[in-house]
Design a protein around this nucleic acid. Structure first.
Lengths: 189, 189
DNA sequence: ACGGTCATGTAAAGTGTTACATGATTAC
DNA sequence: GTAATCATGTAACACTTTACATGACCGT
């Protein structure tokens, strides 16, 4: 699934400008799909060319013109077809985990920095999710609820795991040579 | 961080052929980084050209020749520098969550199929992790332990969340119109 | 004999990221 | 006034994916 299809999906939900769509990627989609203007505007151009969306360059009272896109009947059908044809893949690309994997090649101070930074990002994303849910959670569709909750569950699990297991890579005292109990990973919340 | 750097990382751990490296991506890295031959072989060629790795086309007794690569001193330094310079990003690209987000545009049967497929993949990956840990877990470095445990924690959290919340998108009975208690997401294990 | 694994690559097409370029409107 | 936000795009580059192409070795 590419950015084009996602843009079509957003427009199936409500009319929007390219700028609005970017905002949507930054909020609702932020924890499972990314896209910048460099992908979104060309996508909108191609979708328009194919007749799946259209736009009226609206002039709004006293304000500058902007392109408000909306999905066509054909576009809506195309999106539903795409949903049925898309393989439900789930890919992670984590430089964070790469760094951790090679922990013994890094100074402990750098490791601590990396772990703290990741924890900070997780907290920030969780905060963002909370804010979104407080503001508009009561209007969420079941799908939005499911995905929002999924994001929260994964983020919390990540945070807890990092907090409880960072000693594995940060402790350089090597007191665990004989593989004592302290070496067991902790998964419990 | 690109495939080149990761190949260098694998070679810092032990000598390997392109084929071996692909296997490493499929096992140890599978849940946080992907690469195919189409990325790996060109990467090895460029790393060789830059003098960061080298290979002796070994002829092994009675067996076909193969290119066993090993890291040079310069390559090892370059990799350590890369580790310190790499931003610890963590990106997810999930068609699975996209589909779930647009659940109301899909037939329930398709949704069930998607959820079951994902659960199957999660179980398969968990099984793979278990096997790896049983076979070689006692030789894992702290970094490998941390990353392996992280993968397990996230996979288990995903599985539990899906099991406990799939009704949000699968129940079409609409009995929750008045936002009763049954609408609450369940996060507990 | 046959299927699976080992083993190495190339080429084209598709995709996304980044930097650049511009300028109006709004809130403080 | 000025900084942030709204708003739209282009072009070059980097990177990955997919399909293609080939063939030896090993176990049964």
């Amino acid at each position: 699934m590419d950015v084009k299809t996602l843009c079509l999906g957003v427009l199936c939900h409500c009319d929007a400008t390219g700028y609005d769509i970017k905002k949507h990627f930054e909020s609702a989609f932020s924890h499972f799909f990314l896209a910048g203007y460099g992908s979104i505007y060309p996508a909108l151009a191609e979708l328009t060319e194919r007749g799946l969306i259209c736009c009226d360059a609206e002039s709004r009272a006293g304000k500058r013109e902007r392109k408000l896109y909306r999905v066509t009947e054909e576009g809506r059908r195309a999106f539903e077809d795409a949903l049925c044809a898309t393989e439900p893949r789930h890919k992670v690309r984590s430089e964070f985990l790469v760094l951790l994997y090679f922990a013994q090649l890094m100074p402990t101070s750098r490791l601590t920095e990396v772990l703290d930074q990741r924890l900070g990002e997780i907290e920030a994303t969780l905060g963002q999710l909370d804010t979104m849910e407080r503001l508009e959670g009561d209007r969420w569709s079941p799908g939005e609820q499911f995905v929002g909750g999924f994001g929260r569950a994964i983020l919390e699990a990540s945070r807890n795991y990092i907090r409880q297991n960072r000693h594995l890579v940060e402790d350089t005292t090597d007191s665990g040579q004989t593989s004592g109990v302290s070496d067991l990973r902790v998964n419990a919340v």
